[in-house]
């Protein structure tokens, strides 16, 4: 366990003091303009990785004789100005750290803490720095599990998870560029290799749409793991694969049926019918507040193999199966540990 990295217990401690959390929230709006700082307890302990303007604004010295509200307003205006003139940087994949720190993570953090009450376990398996490939199960009809995984890793391990998305994501208006701004990119061997070579922590859901869009009755049953492309990438890059089990996402939008003709018409991979959608209209888009646990497993090193093993189909298939089995077992274990889906 690494010093300075809060574990899941730290997170749970934070969660069983709802009063202080609430206070912090209310105070937050006045004191620091909640969009510009990390709100909630644990934020200070969760590392100071706030890149871009967010960190700068908070370390502003308080000696200029202005009240906190004015300072906040000024910081807000500065931020607005930067965004309006386009004075921020994105990397070659389109990742916009300022956007992530200011909009994505604060929004997702609220869901993460208070709606899904996510617990992260096995954080000691994540490397402090350097490349690794996190392989997780995918579920929930809408890929909210991806955002939760990214937010948790950001808050607790102080790393930006670079997720790999299906090509459909990049065809859909808004989704594609939001995904790039959040640090994701296309699940393409070249992109994976490039990210791993830069020492990034890369995340992939090999089940793809088969996983996220599977019917509720098949919950927690892993689908086929693509064609093992992720194993080939890890072998070529000689980076460890970290299996990850996400429990809780299956219950957020229980997909009980699929309107295929409508899906085909709209160009979606499926058109879900859930107990609340589309019956309740927009209200049906509110995810059910299931209890989540995200568990990381023992890293599987690729250094036992030669990089050339990526071209040996049998090695790739065997490793793919091995990792799939590992995650399936982790899922069953964590499910037992969690108990009821809507427990505290």
């Amino acid at each position: 366990m690494n010093a300075g990295r809060p574990n899941s217990d730290g997170e749970r401690d934070a969660d069983i003091i709802p009063i202080s959390a609430g206070e912090h929230h209310r105070a937050g709006t006045g004191r620091r303009g909640h969009a510009f700082g990390r709100d909630g307890p644990g934020a200070t302990g969760a590392g100071t990785g706030a890149g871009g303007g967010a960190a700068e604004d908070r370390t502003e010295p308080a000696h200029d004789g202005h009240g906190p509200i004015e300072r906040e307003l000024a910081a807000g205006l500065r931020f607005l100005r930067r965004r309006l003139v386009g004075d921020y940087e994105v990397d070659e994949f389109g990742f916009d750290p300022e956007f992530a720190e200011t909009f994505l993570f604060p929004l997702a953090r609220t869901l993460y803490r208070h709606w899904f009450r996510v617990e992260m376990a096995g954080l000691e398996h994540l490397p402090d720095k350097g490349a690794a490939l996190i392989v997780a199960n995918h579920s929930g009809t809408l890929p909210i599990d991806a955002v939760m995984l990214q937010t948790g890793i950001h808050d607790h391990a102080d790393r930006i998870l670079r997720l790999l998305g299906a090509d459909l994501v990049y065809q859909v208006p808004f989704l594609g560029h939001l995904s790039r701004k959040s640090g994701h990119t296309l699940a393409h061997p070249a992109d994976t290799a490039r990210l791993l070579a830069k020492g990034e922590l890369v995340g992939v859901f090999p089940e793809g749409f088969k996983g996220v869009g599977k019917p509720f009755r098949e919950r927690y049953h892993l689908q086929r793991f693509g064609r093992g492309g992720f194993v080939a990438s890890a072998l070529r890059g000689q980076v460890p694969i970290i299996p990850c089990a996400i429990v809780g996402a299956e219950e957020i939008y229980p997909k009980i049926a699929d309107l295929r003709p409508l899906a085909r018409l709209l160009g979606f991979p499926y058109f879900p019918i859930t107990p609340t959608f589309p019956w309740l209209g927009p209200l049906g888009l509110v995810p059910l507040p299931s209890k989540w646990i995200i568990q990381f497993g023992e890293p599987v090193p690729m250094s036992d193999y030669e990089p050339d093993a990526a071209d040996d189909a049998l090695t790739v298939f065997n490793l793919t199966d091995q990792i799939r089995e590992t995650i399936q077992h982790m899922l069953y274990d964590v499910l037992l540990r969690r108990g009821s889906a809507f427990s505290r």
Binding site: E70, A74, R81
Partner: peptide, 17 residues
């Protein structure tokens, strides 16, 4: 123009130093 408005506002607030 939109920027001049923001800069003016910032001056009023007096926080941008």
């Amino acid at each position: 123009p939109p920027l001049t408005v923001i800069d003016r506002l910032a001056d009023v607030v007096g926080g941008i130093r």
